[in-house]
């Protein structure tokens, strides 16, 4: 068994609600009630206008690969023996971009492409939270 992945650490009040929601397999993001823009990663203020009235939403979990790389070498014990794996920025349909992994493909080198449609796939962690990853939609 590989070592556990680095986990989000708490207390960290901006991102804690996001991670709490992952325990119910909910992928959450915020919008600003003042300027209506999408806020991600989660914050207590709006980085677009400085507004402090933010609203949480659940994403449907569908998006598009904006860009990716296949990691061949990571010396961190959680990843060192995984074999090649894909990290990516995914643009969710609700308008936010998140870092993630693309999984559920036979060969990440050949099977991941920019522009491909993906949907969320949860990877439950021993710490109780779940990591939102993405697989072909």
């Amino acid at each position: 068994m590989p070592a556990p992945r680095p986990q989000p650490r708490f207390p960290e009040p901006d991102t804690q609600p996001f991670w709490e929601a992952t325990k119910e397999h909910r992928l959450t993001y915020q919008t600003c009630r003042t300027c209506s823009k999408v806020v991600f990663y989660p914050r207590r203020h709006c980085p677009h206008c400085g507004g402090r009235d933010l609203e949480w939403h659940d994403s449907k979990g569908f998006g598009t690969v904006y860009t990716y790389s296949v990691v061949r070498l990571n010396r961190h014990p959680a990843f060192a023996d995984l074999g090649p794996y894909a990290v990516a920025y995914v643009d969710l349909d609700e308008g936010f971009r998140m870092l993630t992994n693309i999984v559920g493909v036979a060969d990440p080198v050949k099977d991941v492409r920019i522009g491909m449609r993906v949907k969320v796939r949860w990877d439950d962690q021993e710490s109780g939270i779940s990591l939102p990853m993405f697989e072909p939609a």
Partner: peptide, 14 residues
Amino acid sequence: PSPLSNMTEPWGMT
């Protein structure tokens, strides 16, 4: 921990 570290570290982006 920071918001950024919590939103990046789990996915193994070197």
